[in-house]
Design a protein around this nucleic acid. Structure first.
Length: 111
DNA sequence: AGATTGACTAACC
DNA sequence: AGGTTAGCCAATC
């Protein structure tokens, strides 16, 4: 990924919010959008999809409203998603048999 | 500068 | 219950 491209102001805000998510907790694109007063979960997704700093910035702790994983490195299934699940598992996040995130949402919102 | 594009969602069929 | 539509908004083409 382009770690050299300068983050936009919006991206910077997204990353700052992400930094507040504790280990083992997750949040949703929607919750982040609300927190940033952005009003669009998609815009947040856009910022994350180009996140040059994964997983230094814990963008893997962001899942969809329906608790499915969403995406990682711009893809919605495949190796990266597998990696995302592993990262979350290693932080103690539990999954249901149909691949949805179980517990811990974070301060931003539960849904 | 205008159109297109998404790591999204809620609302409808 | 599962597919489609319509809004959303920043970044990119």
């Amino acid at each position: 990924m382009d770690r050299n491209r300068l983050p936009t102001p919006f991206e910077t805000r997204v990353y700052e919010a992400l930094r507040k998510i504790p280990r083992g907790r997750v949040t949703t694109y929607r919750a982040l959008a609300r927190y940033l007063e952005c009003g669009s979960a998609r815009a947040v997704g856009q910022a994350l999809k180009r996140n040059p700093f994964a997983p230094e910035v814990p963008c893997h702790r962001v899942v969809r409203g329906d608790r499915s994983l969403g995406g990682f490195h711009g893809v919605t299934q495949g190796d990266w998603i597998r990696k995302k699940r592993e990262l979350l598992l290693s932080e103690g996040v539990k999954f249901s048999s149909d691949g949805k995130v179980l517990g811990g949402c974070c301060i931003f919102e539960i849904g």
